[in-house]
Write a protein that binds this DNA or RNA. Sequence first.
DNA 1: GCGACAG
DNA 2: ATCTTGTCGC
Length: 263
Amino acid sequence: MSHARADLAPDAALSRGEMEDLQREIADVALFEDDFSFDPSALSNPLEATASGAEPPIVVGIDQSFLTNDDGDQDRALSAVVAMRGGEVIERVHAVTPLEIPYIPGLLSFREGAPILAALEELSVDPDLLLFDGSGRIHFRQAGIATHMGVVRDVPSVGVAKSLLCGTPVEDTDGLPAGTTIGIESNARVDAPDGTLLGYAVQTRQYDSPNRYINPLYVSPGHRVGPETAADIVLELASSYKLPEPVRLADQYADEAKKSLGE
DNA sequence: GCGACAG
DNA sequence: ATCTTGTCGC
């Protein structure tokens, strides 16, 4: 039983106020708790290690790049999707759609949502989990791009941002040891009761000794995933680099695909 | 009016 | 996001 909500897909023709209203509706439909059947701790398990014959879940990483016009203007967005299972890439697809609106903090999904949904349509495999480059519940109206896409497709999703859009860390997040997590709570800028746990600052990697720090990632539930599980998933998937592997590879692929189209 | 602001 | 090589530090 899929509860996909294509009717809530981002529409760049809406007014800014209508976009914000739609986001409040999406946040209302979204589930910020675990609601999936796969085993998150099996995400990076090698296929061979699966004893009972059950295959590891399929995780998909998604990232965008932008194509430039003959005049030098960004006129199209390219969404790259990389599907992995048991630590291996099993499929890569991408889609390009025209850019309708500029970047506006808080309305990212209305700018990048179309190519993402188009690319996901191209996928032949069925994703168990979607990983986005951007926020989920850590958002002014609790409906970042990970939440929006997750609700429209009704697939568990997680937002992985490199900087904090809003909310407040409950403790200092400077120089955290790898593996550390610090809660991010709502503040006055967020459309939620103060103190609501929106997500976590997640330190996947850290330098050994110098007086220089690696910034943490800001991980938040998209849809059908709780904040703790979202953080756990990112820690497990970020084996060799700061970013979780599916997102890192989608990042790479977004650039490759872009160049193969004539920059 | 001032400050904040994912990609 | 994007323009971009070398370079400082472990």
